[in-house]
Amino acid sequence: MDDLDRLRAVFRSTLDLAPDAPDADVDGLEYRAIPQWDSLAHMSLVAAIEDEFDIMIDTDDVLDLSSFAKAVTLLDKHGVVTAG
């Protein structure tokens, strides 16, 4: 499983999405766009991303993490290779 798939798996698990939710649906997720991704789930999501990739996310980045795409950018910032 590549890093992008690992990130999708974190989103599916933490936000209680269907395990077979299409990649495109996960990739298009945005904060508060679905009922499951509220402020409480956001903190769980951040913790799950940190655990999965063994990183620590700054508070400013936690606040900026408003979509799956932003999460990809954040992982890039931490040196996790998600592209290609």
């Binding site: 903190m43 951040v46 913790a47 940190e50 655990d51 620590m56 996310i57 508070t59």
Partner: peptide, 10 residues
């Protein structure tokens, strides 16, 4: 406290 919360959650 705010910066430690995610370490505490673990």
């Amino acid at each position: 406290l705010q910066e430690a919360v995610r370490l505490l959650r673990r």
